Computed example of a mutant assay.
Amino acid sequence: MGVNQIVCCSDFSDHAEVAFQTALDLSQRYNAKLYVVHVLPPVVNPMLTDTELMLPEHPDENLVVSLNERMQEVYGNRIPEKIDFELVVRDGHVSTEIIRFIEETDADLAVVGAFGLSGMGLVLFGSVAKRISHKAPCSVMIVRNKKA
């Protein structure tokens, strides 16, 4: 299996950190381009009905700038110069946007944490890792945090 492009999915959780470390290691080993992707999910109030639900067309620009800065601090500053990488922030349905990004970049491998959201978030949004593993056009590596 040739690995030229790796997509690492991040929600800044402990499992996402393990996914990042794994993707970084694989990127160095295969000399592959590394994409670290974070998707800003839409804000949904579970108390609203379908007719009351109105989502903003675009997320707050300050929030996107803030997320880009956080991506650089948390991930970008730790990636060695010899690795070709890109930090990406998108907004929308998390698994749909990640799968779309994987398709756009023609990635060879996606690395995701086994868990991210917990509690009500998991009930509302379902398992992102599960959706990606079922629908991605490339191989998907699901990593676990041994401490969890």
Rank of each mutant, 00 (worst) to 15 (best):
95 S>Q: 00
115 F>L: 10
126 G>C: 02
51 T>Q: 10
53 L>R: 06
91 D>G: 14
90 R>M: 09
112 V>H: 01
122 L>W: 04
39 V>F: 06
61 E>R: 09
71 M>D: 06
45 N>Q: 09
84 D>R: 09
103 E>Q: 12
4 N>Q: 07
17 E>F: 14
65 V>G: 04
111 V>E: 00
124 L>S: 03
63 L>Y: 03
109 L>W: 00
8 C>Q: 02
107 A>W: 04
70 R>H: 11
68 N>S: 03
96 T>L: 05
44 V>D: 00
35 Y>R: 04
55 L>I: 15
133 S>W: 02
4 N>F: 11
37 V>L: 11
141 M>D: 06
88 V>T: 13
107 A>H: 03
134 H>N: 06
51 T>D: 13
24 L>M: 09
23 A>D: 01
45 N>G: 11
131 R>M: 04
19 A>I: 14
49 T>L: 09
78 R>S: 11
114 A>W: 02
55 L>H: 05
18 V>S: 10
23 A>R: 01
16 A>H: 04
22 T>G: 03
9 C>E: 06
68 N>V: 00
139 S>G: 06
32 A>Q: 06
132 I>D: 01
27 S>C: 13
144 R>P: 05
114 A>P: 04
29 R>L: 15
86 E>W: 00
72 Q>W: 05
100 R>D: 11
31 N>R: 13
124 L>Q: 05
4 N>A: 09
32 A>Y: 07
40 L>Y: 07
73 E>P: 06
100 R>T: 08
95 S>T: 00
19 A>M: 07
136 A>L: 05
82 K>D: 10
58 H>L: 14
141 M>C: 10
72 Q>R: 07
69 E>L: 13
50 D>N: 11
26 L>Q: 13
51 T>Y: 10
119 G>Q: 04
35 Y>C: 14
124 L>T: 10
108 D>W: 09
92 G>K: 04
143 V>I: 11
17 E>A: 11
7 V>W: 01
59 P>M: 04
111 V>N: 02
107 A>R: 07
116 G>E: 03
70 R>D: 07
114 A>S: 13
49 T>V: 08
58 H>R: 11
128 V>P: 01
143 V>A: 08
